[in-house]
Design a protein around this nucleic acid. Structure first.
Lengths: 193, 193
DNA sequence: TGACAAAATATAACAGTGTTATATCGTGTA
DNA sequence: TACACGATATAACACTGTTATATTTTGTCA
């Protein structure tokens, strides 16, 4: 990749990790990357381009986190391991997670390319979770099971990020989430037997 | 309530419902309410105050939606009815829902009062879901069960709002969510027996 | 009623945002 | 060496939330 382009991206990533979305202004990125504001527009398509890059980065992190070896002998453990990785990534890259699942008040809409990155992660998640079901389960069932587990984990993480989250001590979330996922897995598996 | 204050709020609500957060500028609200920008600052505490009002409104809608008569004879149906109302509200007031569970890039943080409204809704949700558990279940168990069901529903809604949601036909979501919640309820109940 | 104080409203400005038009500079080619 | 073209910089535009400074309206008391 272009050297300048890379410099801009690391500057943006830096600002984003430290101060969140509100710290990510075009001028601040340019200052951090030692060039003038117009540079952001010649190397990226303005702020939309920067956000797109971070959006894709976010889904890549998620994808990397659940890249567990799919164990067909014990799919339950495989899915739980993937869930653990997913949770950890959501905490480690909270800003990214907020960006890819947040509400984008500044009018940001992910580009075609960014949406494809999201879809790619979705497909992989579906595949991991599908190992829970018997081999002859059809596509709809797999997708539905995947959405169920994903929604559960994602919902927990989102509630954790919420203002009311302080009723739960921070360390207790992971166990709580994994317990719930375990329960859900058992219910799903007994349904398809 | 003050007449002018009400006028401002309805103008804000109007703009919010139509154009989302990005349409909600102080000047636009003032224009719509037929007064000058400074009015927003004398009747509310600026934009923070407006967002707080909408935030509280959002949680009030949620609270109203799940105000079902708690049927101790059949708590399963009661919770499912509450879930149905919750889903409907999230679709009907999508902007509000995004605001109260979204990521607030503009640096908005709910005030003490707004957080109390959130907590109030949370407590009520807990109470509704707690009817699923036997009477002697302790507080932690109730809260955990509530979070499990809530996270599942909330996660589904959030995924539905997401860009990748178009892989599912829009009408299919409600049944899918309610099925998943039913499964989760059964698993929870069999766990506590 | 008239005069003054206080509250409500309006105007204009400030610092910030994303974006773009204009100007400058530097480098490569003929 | 002269020209052209691409990269960089400056400055401006229209917008944002917010606030300081006028102006108007309102209410109270003599």
């Amino acid at each position: 990749m272009n050297k300048t382009k890379e410099k801009i991206l690391t500057a943006a990533s830096q600002l984003f990790l430290n101060g969140g979305l509100s710290a990510l202004s075009v001028r601040a990125i340019a200052r951090e990357a030692n060039l003038s504001t117009i540079g952001i527009y010649s190397y990226f398509e303005g702020k939309q381009g920067i956000l797109d890059a971070l959006y894709i980065e976010g889904f890549e992190k998620v994808l990397a986190a659940i890249q567990v070896s799919i164990d067909l002998k014990n799919p339950r453990l495989g899915v739980l391991a993937a869930a653990k990785g997913y949770i950890k990534t959501a905490q480690l890259y909270r800003g990214h997670y907020r960006l890819i699942f947040g509400e984008s008040d500044s009018g940001y809409k992910p580009s075609k390319l960014a949406q494809e990155a999201a879809k790619k992660a979705f497909i992989h998640i579906t595949q991991v979770i599908a190992t829970l079901l018997p081999e002859d389960a059809n596509y709809e069932s797999r997708r539905e099971a995947a959405l169920q587990i994903w929604a559960l984990i994602h919902g927990f993480i989102n509630l954790q990020h919420h203002a009311i989250a302080d009723v739960i001590e921070p360390g207790a979330w992971e166990k709580m989430i994994l317990d719930a996922v375990g329960l859900q897995i058992d219910a799903l598996q007994s349904k398809y037997e």
